[in-house]
Simulated assay, not measured.
Amino acid sequence: MADKDKRIVIAGAGSIGFYAGGCLALAGREVILLARPRIEAALRQDGLRVSDLEGRDRSIKPEALVVTADPAAALPQAGVILVTVKSGATQDMADLIKAHAPPEALVVSLQNGVDNADRLRAGLAGRTVLAGMVPFNVVQSPDGELPLRVHRASAGTVMVEDGVAGLADLLGVQGFAIETHRDMKAVLWGKLLMNLNNALVALSDLPLATELADRRWRLILASQIDEALRAMKATGIEPARIAGLRPALLPKVLGLPDWLFRLLARRMLAIDPQARSSMWDDLQRGRPTEIDDLQGAILRLAEKAGTPVPTVQRITALVRAAEAERLGSPGLAPEQIVAPVGRRST
């Protein structure tokens, strides 16, 4: 990896992308944000505010940001491309990178799900593509609030596939810690287990910390994880530890009484009180969610393994119904997850 003047393009700047790009720009890295036109206009007007769980609150003036909505303007300058689009846009981003980015540009997927780096590799034959994993939650300010603010609402170190010397030194900056890992497949499947909770936050309309503090919701998450672990075992997948725990222990820990869970799972509950999931945000904004790349990955694995996953199926169906209604989060109670739910009226 070359020196720290290498240009880093944030390809598809959303909450994670803005946070990563903001931290990198504040550390003096050369950053280009590839964003939607509406966001480009907001950043050019008022800049970007970057805050985190540890209490840092930093601002970047508009003139200090390089932002564009034009892939043909951003990607040709890239030395490193951090792909932060939603999973459903991975193929489109691969096509843009192939069309506009230099062949030697390093591509790093910082997306949810387990397949995105492989999708990028398939569309970018001959280029170097690395898998990555972002463990923390980032909250974006509501539409219309300026300056646009991104807030890291939980802790964690970003993991990136080993193999490119100096990459962690280039990308690892204050507020955005980076480590390399040899077995990203295990890391991504481990992260997926906890990402199964994104749908519960989306369906409940509760902040993440409130939802996780309620044993009724944790039991539903534990049921999903149990089903996922059976499918993984049947297909030879060994997920990495999550929050220091062996995956097999997660359902047991999640099922503990609330008082004991709060005592033993402090790392899991170290979350900003207002943080929610990106899937909740998608429902609120009427956008497609990543359900097919989270619960959907378990459904595909279970079909291959021949193992039952009724809880995962039920939650998938509920999220798809909420997507179709375009009324935001349905605000379900835990009991409604396992019982038929009627359609809402406007």
Rank of each mutant, 00 (worst) to 15 (best):
D162S: 02
D162T: 01
D162Y: 00
V164A: 02
A165N: 01
G166C: 04
D169I: 05
D169G: 13
L170S: 01
L170V: 05
L170N: 01
L170K: 02
Q174T: 14
G175Y: 06
F176W: 10
F176V: 09
A177P: 05
A177C: 04
E179D: 12
T180A: 07
T180V: 11
H181W: 14
R182G: 09
D183R: 08
D183T: 05
K185V: 15
K185L: 14
A186W: 10
A186E: 12
L188T: 02
L188W: 05
W189C: 04
W189Q: 04
G190E: 13
K191A: 12
K191G: 11
L192E: 12
L192D: 11
L192I: 13
L193Q: 10
L193D: 03
L193P: 06
M194Y: 15
M194K: 13
M194G: 09
M194T: 13
M194I: 15
N195M: 13
L196S: 04
N197D: 15
N198G: 07
A199H: 04
A199L: 09
L200W: 08
L200Q: 08
V201P: 01
V201D: 01
L203M: 08
S204G: 07
D205Q: 03
L206G: 06
L208I: 02
L208C: 08
L208W: 01
A209P: 02
A209K: 15
A209L: 13
T210Y: 00
T210F: 02
T210W: 01
L212N: 02
A213M: 05
R215H: 06
R215W: 06
R215T: 10
R216V: 06
R216D: 06
W217H: 06
L219P: 00
L219Y: 00
L219W: 01
I220P: 01
I220A: 09
L221I: 07
L221W: 06
A222S: 14
A222V: 12
Q224L: 07
Q224I: 06
D226M: 11
D226P: 03
E227K: 04
A228W: 10
L229I: 07
R230W: 03
M232N: 07
M232F: 12
A234V: 02
T235H: 05
G236A: 10
I237Y: 04
E238N: 13
P239H: 05
P239T: 10
A240M: 15
R241E: 15
I242C: 15
I242N: 15
G244R: 14
L245C: 13
L245V: 12
R246G: 05
R246K: 15
P247Y: 12
A248I: 14
L249V: 01
L250K: 04
G255W: 11
G255H: 07
G255L: 11
G255V: 08
L256I: 00
